[in-house]
């Protein structure tokens, strides 16, 4: 059985600020990031769908350490965002001062953009990730 929405296709779309996922025809749930099956009902009767890229922050951290090769990114803020369509997704919070991010950020609405992580020797190519900014 074919993988409907691969990382390659997801990644290419995200680089154009389009967040792609799957919408289940059986239970209606969205799965994003994509998987082989519906993350809710584990069936495969779904189709590729574009998500709004809007959601709200459920949790965050500002990191002062980084993996090898990413030291120049610190400090950076990681957020977990609950998308309007339901799924949670991990990304960064940008256009803010990471050192000033506090618990007040939780619940704030955000809009998706993207940043690209350039390849390292383990990553098998570059990878875009959601880069959220606060909606004023």
């Amino acid at each position: 059985m074919e993988y409907k929405l691969t990382f390659k296709d997801y990644n290419q779309a995200l680089k154009r600020d389009k967040l792609m996922g799957l919408k289940c025809n059986d239970c209606g749930a969205f799965t994003c990031p994509p998987m082989m099956v519906c993350g809710e009902c584990a069936r495969t009767n779904h189709e590729i769908a574009q998500l709004s890229g809007k959601g709200k922050i459920v949790t965050f951290t500002t990191s002062f350490i980084a993996a090898e090769g990413r030291e120049n990114e610190v400090p950076y803020t990681i957020v977990m965002v609950e998308l309007d369509e339901g799924p949670w997704i991990m990304g960064n919070l940008v256009a803010i001062d990471p050192k000033k991010v506090t618990m007040d950020i939780v619940g704030k609405p955000v809009q998706l953009g993207n940043r690209v992580y350039p390849a390292d020797k383990y990553s098998n190519g570059d990878m875009a990730r959601p880069a959220f900014s606060l909606l004023e």
Binding site: T59, T61, S63, A67, I78, N92, M103, Y117, M127
Partner: peptide, 28 residues
């Protein structure tokens, strides 16, 4: 590498960060 390499590492995933996310979630 023990997080999701495609969908979560690009955001700067590290294990301290994972439990930091959970700590803020726990507090809330």
């Amino acid at each position: 590498m023990f997080g999701d390499s495609r969908y979560e590492f690009p955001a700067g995933f590290t294990f301290p960060a994972v439990f930091a996310l959970l700590a803020h979630l726990y507090s809330n």
